[in-house]
């Protein structure tokens, strides 16, 4: 059991799909990639379906001696755990794929790495207090709504 843990590392592959693929087929391509990872004994930790974005600069890719340039692409990523000896095979497979303009295969951590959008930069404790208040409010709201509805109904009937 310990050996497996040592060999299993968390990786993340970010990739750009060619913009010539129709929008409907993009989730299919993403699914294929996930299946490929699973077929190499990987376990998906988290992922994001590719979405179209304007590239910061023009990229080119040569497929069968034809050089094509891209200004937009679909960017998606998958975070997964995989044995370290299998990752090279996966990389080779991704290199061949003609739908991928380029990809980035990196080691990462299991935790969610994208930070929350809004920060309260002063102190964390203050932020926590605010969050707990918000949750309390959310919990209390539905009960109030039901009560209000009942009250309104009673008033209407009267």
């Amino acid at each position: 059991m310990e050996n497996i843990d040592i060999n299993d590392r968390i990786y993340e592959v970010g990739y750009l799909l060619v913009p010539t693929i129709p929008e409907e087929e993009v989730p299919g391509n993403h699914g294929n990639l996930k299946e490929l990872i699973i077929s190499y004994g990987g376990e998906i930790v988290s992922d994001e379906i590719p979405r179209r974005l304007n590239l910061a600069y023009t990229m080119s890719k040569v497929v069968q001696n034809v050089k094509s340039k891209f200004d937009t692409a679909y960017f998606g990523w998958v975070k997964f755990s995989m044995a370290s000896d299998k990752i090279l095979e996966l990389k080779k497979k991704l290199d061949i794929d003609s739908n991928i303009i380029r990809f980035l295969l990196i080691k990462t951590v299991k935790e969610n790495t994208i930070a929350a959008k809004r920060f309260i930069s002063r102190d964390v404790t203050h932020k926590r207090v605010m969050f707990s208040k918000e949750t309390e409010l959310k919990e209390s709201v539905p009960i109030n709504e039901e009560e209000i509805d009942k009250e309104i109904d009673a008033m209407v009937e009267n």
């Binding site: 970010g14 990523w77 990196i106 990462t108 951590v109 790495t113 930070a115 930069s121």
Partner: peptide, 15 residues
């Protein structure tokens, strides 16, 4: 460290 970010992610373009 003040925003408690332990791993700097390349996807977080806003940061």
């Amino acid at each position: 460290s003040s925003n408690n970010i332990k791993y700097i992610d390349y996807k977080d373009i806003e940061i």
